[in-house]
Design a binder for these strands. Structure first.
Lengths: 341, 341
DNA sequence: TTGAAAGCGCTAACAA
DNA sequence: TTGTTAGCGCTTTCAA
């Protein structure tokens, strides 16, 4: 049995309440007594019992809100799953977690949801951010009013949010480049297809890829970035155009969605395996293409963690007052082939 | 605030105790009343509060023992770290976790440790198994006496243990083959270096690798398996011999330890990058070779999970009576390059 | 500055 | 078969 407050109190010859005050440094206590108690607690290896704490705090319950955007993607479904598991876990300790789903990407709706939560007494909020200024202002305002905010998946850098949980997009691009470098023949030709020029993640991935590939395979010829707007039709058309102009094409890197379109064209032209494809995100259609050999590698984000950890970080903060160790909590960059999917 | 037993009791017009008996199906209760209570609990969406439960059970405390073998490897250090984190987590709920380290691989010592724990009243044990018959008998005996047993890292198949948590070795080998297939030139020559012919994991990895490579790259010439007994010196000598006989060697797959020796020879001969090396286990020296380009891919096991999950599986079983969903809980097969390490 | 006591949700022993 | 009650370890309020 672990050490309890009462045991420390007995040893120190004081009451439980005094020990609690000493250890929580709440003041209203004789400094000498406090020091002595802390020493005893230390010697006995006191570790507060979480169950007791949770129970005692049940009335001032912790309320956490999670605002998830653009639910339609399978990636976001993974995030949702992680968030739900975390919800269940902390609710069993008496907290309340509400997951608010917003279908589109819409900062105004996010801000509205945040205010609603504040009104309802929520003390922690996790959200998928964007770089809208009004959203940044709202985050800062909430933080100053004592509501803990974390961003996940997409950051609002420069704000007062506690931390960001998500992928290091540049590293993801560089990892893709490293893989491409291994599997390309000499003097290969490679096309990068991105999503939106304005999307920060897409941009960082593409830049990371290009910089790294230029560096470690200077013989490779990189064609200019094309944008498919996360659209399979557009990606398919781009692929056809590129293949028409560059019959010698050896590789395609997809920094965003659209792989389905690319794979379709490659399949039709019988180029499966000869044009190497590296794509992002572990989606059903990507997995299918990976298994049938059209895609060589998928670079994944750990969707589950990106939903799970924001809840946990907020809970630890609100329950224990424990700040996250890192401001940037990058999730694993996962490499998947047909064999380890 | 979540639904409590008292609220259900109020609604049903009975006492807390009765509700508890109804929901726990402990008998000694009027079946009709029980059914009614269960219905009400269902409607109200009752979720037992874990903190309350943990606190109430604090006297009949849960004692979990983890027996770890061959601590010298960095992989096992990772396992230990996971086990320690899990220990901390469940001890904060009132349980006790003891991690017993056994330096060598020695089934007798494991069995002795198990008996000691049984004597000390432990009700759950996690261990790194081997295929010794006496160990298997002990596991079955303990299980029948009501002590929950899980194996991790290395299994004791066919015993009554609750589940196994570890890597699917065959899949690891096949994944390596898939990577090798992508990066090898035509008509390449590949050497497989394993650890011990008698080691089940080593064997499954090597077989998985060979079968898959034969299948997807029939042009590749596979040299016979060599054994390095997890020894860097031996691996280095083997590498030298092989390179002497096969100047055209293109790839080496290490199914076990010894990569340090292999990389040293490859470095000395200036073959870095031209002889592709795929190795197992995320060790410091492997990481170094990965970063400097001598190793192309490391296949990792999720060491942390292999320490963390056994504790959690045992705790869930002993705390909630919840059996694990899967008998074989395979951990992720992780692909690491210099970019995502 | 300290102690005493109530109560958080649940279990289990005992009483009815 | 059911109700009652004493805790489990902790926080917090009130009284001293």
């Amino acid at each position: 049995m672990a050490v309890t407050l009462q045991q420390i109190a007995d040893k120190a010859g004081v009451s439980r309440g005094t020990v609690d005050r000493a250890l929580k440094e709440r003041g209203r206590i004789n400094p000498e007594v406090a020091a002595k108690i802390r020493k005893i607690a230390d010697e006995m290896g006191y570790q507060p019992n979480r169950a007791g704490r949770a129970l005692a705090m049940a009335k001032h319950s912790i309320k956490i809100g999670i605002i998830i955007q653009s639910m339609e993607t399978p990636f976001m479904q993974g995030v949702l799953e992680g968030a739900k598991d975390a919800k269940q876990e902390v609710e069993r300790l008496g907290a309340t977690v509400t997951i608010r789903k917003i279908s589109e990407l819409d900062s105004d709706k996010v801000i509205a949801a945040m205010h609603k939560m504040k009104g309802a007494g929520y003390n922690g909020i996790g959200l998928v951010a964007s770089d809208e200024e009004r959203l940044a202002d709202t985050i800062d305002q909430f933080t100053e009013e004592g509501i803990s905010v974390v961003t996940f998946n997409s950051d609002a850098a420069g704000t007062k949010r506690m931390c960001f949980i998500g992928q290091n997009a540049g590293q993801s691009g560089r990892t893709a480049a490293g893989l491409m470098a291994e599997i390309l023949p000499d003097n290969a030709v490679v096309q990068v297809i991105s999503g939106y020029a304005s999307n920060q993640s897409h941009k960082e991935r593409a830049e990371g890829f290009i910089n790294e590939l230029n560096q470690c395979r200077p013989d490779v010829k990189l064609l200019g970035i094309r944008y498919a707007y996360d659209n399979d039709r557009a990606a398919a058309e781009i692929t056809q155009e590129v293949l028409k102009e560059h019959k010698e094409l050896n590789g395609i890197y997809l920094a965003a969605s659209g792989a389905k379109g690319v794979c379709q064209v490659i399949g039709e032209k019988g180029l499966k395996g000869s044009v190497k494809v590296i794509s992002n995100d572990i989606t059903d259609s990507n997995i299918e293409s990976l298994k049938n050999g059209t895609i060589q590698f998928i670079l994944g984000q750990d969707a589950y963690s990106q939903g799970y950890r924001p809840v946990m970080v907020l809970f630890d903060k609100l329950f224990d007052g424990k700040d996250p160790e890192e401001e940037y909590q990058y999730t694993e960059i996962v490499i998947k082939t047909k064999y380890n999917i």
